[in-house]
């Protein structure tokens, strides 16, 4: 089995079987990173361009490591670093990229729909590394892999996602992916940050953070950006921390073997208290480790993979 489409744009366009395939492939990839020599020849001779129009450290590094561990040639281009970016339209960029015959383009872009647009115009596979507030599929997949690692299965879990849902592509992709895989997703956050009609994605909105956390198996905290004060979306960081942040007291409402996640980078003391972030329930660093495995799986699968999954 392989992926149906050449691009990975969002979780909505992946079937349950495809998500399963990616997660299973990622599991088998995990072990490569534990070897003394962390490299397999699988993607030798393949070219992966990491195109990041928006600043990113973690995601870019993670894709880069993933490509290199599979022996692909990865080249990273950042906004501001390249004439390819300055004043050129995405369409012209696409044409220029195409002319260099890459096999995979990993795109991070500030505008929703950009990855899809690029994918429609490139022969190469496009992996969306985050487009505007639309989707961040590799993040949601690594989140699902991490949950599964700790909980055994995704089905029947209660997952609370808390924070600025409106501006979060991570939240959207997790809503799509987790509900597909049988989890119950409940959202909470300031009403100003709850986008209209989000329930139509098959999730529910809790009246307050405490209600969302009540009995949760997984609590995922989203990064809050201080700039949101400018648009009147929040009051002070102090109030945010008190009313919407995760602390030990609030966490007591969750299931007793709850796990805590955060896509990073964290604002310690704002959306998450330090004792929770570093506490026994936190699986935040496992997310980072799994990120490399999931991205190895995605790169492998979009370049054709094998029809029978990954074999070393």
């Amino acid at each position: 089995m392989a992926l149906e489409q050449k691009d990975v744009i969002d979780l909505a366009s992946l079937s349950v079987d495809e998500i399963r395939l990616i997660l299973d492939t990622a599991k088998s990839m995990r072990e490569i990173s534990e070897r003394p020599i962390k490299k397999v020849p699988t993607l030798r001779g393949k070219t992966v361009i990491l195109f990041f129009y928006e600043p990113s450290t973690r995601t870019k590094l993670s894709f880069d490591i993933a490509a290199k561990r599979l022996s692909a040639d990865s080249i990273s281009v950042s906004a501001g670093m390249s004439s390819l970016v300055k004043g050129e339209t995405l369409l012209d960029t696409a044409k220029n990229l195409e002319a260099m015959r890459p096999d995979v383009v990993v795109l991070r872009h500030a505008f929703s729909g950009a990855s899809r647009m690029l994918g429609e115009r490139l022969e190469a596979s496009v992996i969306n590394a985050g487009d505007g507030t639309h989707a961040h599929p590799s993040q949601a997949l690594l989140d699902m892999l991490t949950i599964e690692q700790h909980k055994g299965s995704l089905s029947g879990l209660r997952v609370a996602i808390i924070g600025d849902i409106a501006h979060s592509r991570v939240a959207r992709s997790n809503c799509e992916g987790l509900t597909k895989m049988g989890s119950e997703v409940v959202l909470a956050g300031p009403t100003t940050m709850m986008p209209k009609g989000i329930e139509q994605m098959g999730v529910s909105v809790a009246p307050c953070v405490d209600a969302a956390i009540e009995g949760a198996d997984v609590v995922m905290m989203l990064r809050i950006q201080k700039e949101r004060q400018k648009n009147f979306l929040m009051s002070t960081e102090r109030e945010y921390a008190r009313r919407f942040g995760l602390n030990a007291e609030r966490l007591a409402r969750a299931s007793k073997d709850v796990v805590i996640m955060h896509p990073g980078p964290m604002n310690r003391g704002v959306e998450i208290s330090p004792e929770v972030a570093d506490g026994p329930y936190s699986i935040i660093l496992d997310q980072v480790t799994n990120g490399v495995a999931v991205r190895m799986a995605l790169l492998f699968l979009v370049v054709g993979g094998s029809r029978h999954g990954y074999t070393d």
Partner: peptide, 13 residues
């Protein structure tokens, strides 16, 4: 238009 579709597509409504 603000609404479920804009929310899903990640476009400001």
């Amino acid at each position: 238009n603000e609404g479920p579709r804009a929310t899903r597509m990640g476009l400001a409504g």
